[in-house]
């Protein structure tokens, strides 16, 4: 096949590729740096200056230490619990709210939307939130991690927009066939916006996976802490560095920092490519009205 592109187009094409490759390398490099560092010999790692393009020496001690840390394992378990529980609760509540707000004949719709959006700009602050959680009896309970973040306003609005794009005729005809709102929602609306559902699900999953602050504030027992809070503990403790007189401890701490990032990031990285095809569709769905 003949290449019909003009030389200028070819150059532009090549430039495009070069820029995109450079940008993706820039995004990729920090991750690779951490990976290489986590596999390096800590003494050579500390002595190394500049870009790290390959592990310096080889050592699995960091991973050994991370995986033998009892808190990392319990943190993993907890994160999975919060993730699964949070997703179930969020993915039940968010469509319910979004559907109601998307229905044009819903009473006080605008007032409700305003109240939801209000919370995006103003929050009660740390201490009032803490008092609410405590007085609801949620303090030091796993529900304190799942319930307060069950519905994110941003995700609710994304979903409402998606629902609004579903033709009203579908709802009308279902009504004529005797369907109630639940049937309409679960049989018609949700299947119509499958891609948005997947994206919102991913948003919830990622934010739950990354969250640590609520756990730090609401969970008294460290046995209930998620992985990210332990990750933070390890990173911050070692960043204050140089407090130990023991050189081995210092070197090991350096490795653990990197190893624990890898251990905590890989699972969510694995999920991303699978969700990506929905992600593309979901983003487009907002703009292309069907």
């Amino acid at each position: 096949m003949m290449d019909k592109r003009t030389p200028l187009e070819k150059v532009l094409h090549a430039l495009n590729y070069a820029v995109v490759t450079a940008v993706s390398l820039m995004c990729l490099y920090p991750m690779l740096h951490v990976l290489f560092a986590s596999l390096s010999d800590p003494m050579r790692l500390l002595a190394h200056r500049g870009l790290l393009l390959w592990p310096q020496g080889f050592s699995l001690k960091g991973y050994q230490a991370v995986l033998s840390n009892p808190n990392i394992l319990s943190g993993y378990m907890n994160t999975i619990i919060y993730l699964a529980g949070g997703l179930v609760v969020s993915m039940v509540l968010t469509p319910l709210g979004a559907y109601a707000l998307a229905c044009k004949d819903y009473p006080f719709r605008n007032v409700l939307v305003f109240l939801f959006v209000f919370t995006m700009y103003f929050s009660g602050g740390l201490i009032p939130n803490f008092l609410v959680i405590k007085n609801l009896g949620l303090y030091d309970s796993r529900w304190a991690i799942i319930l307060p973040t069950a519905v994110s306003t941003y995700n609710l609005i994304v979903m409402r927009t998606a629902f609004s794009s579903v033709p009203g005729a579908l709802q009308e005809s279902a009504c004529l066939d005797g369907a109630n709102d639940f049937v309409i929602l679960y049989r018609i609306y949700i299947p119509c916006i499958r891609a948005t559902m997947a994206v919102v699900c991913l948003f919830y999953a990622v934010s739950q996976w990354n969250s640590w602050f609520n756990s730090m504030i609401y969970l008294q027992s460290s046995s209930k802490w998620p992985l990210q809070l332990w990750l933070r503990e390890i990173l911050i403790n070692s960043a204050s560095g140089g407090t130990s007189d023991d050189a081995d401890a210092l070197y090991l701490q350096e490795l653990i920092r990197y190893a624990v990032i890898i251990v905590a990031t890989v699972p969510i990285l694995v999920v991303y490519p699978y969700a990506q095809k929905y992600f593309m569709k979901g983003v487009m769905l907002g703009s292309v009205k069907g």
Partner: peptide, 15 residues
């Protein structure tokens, strides 16, 4: 949490 010790101390009195 060591990384949030001061916050944890501040919130203690609210319990």
């Amino acid at each position: 949490a060591v990384s949030g010790l001061q916050e944890a101390m501040n919130l203690l009195t609210l319990r």
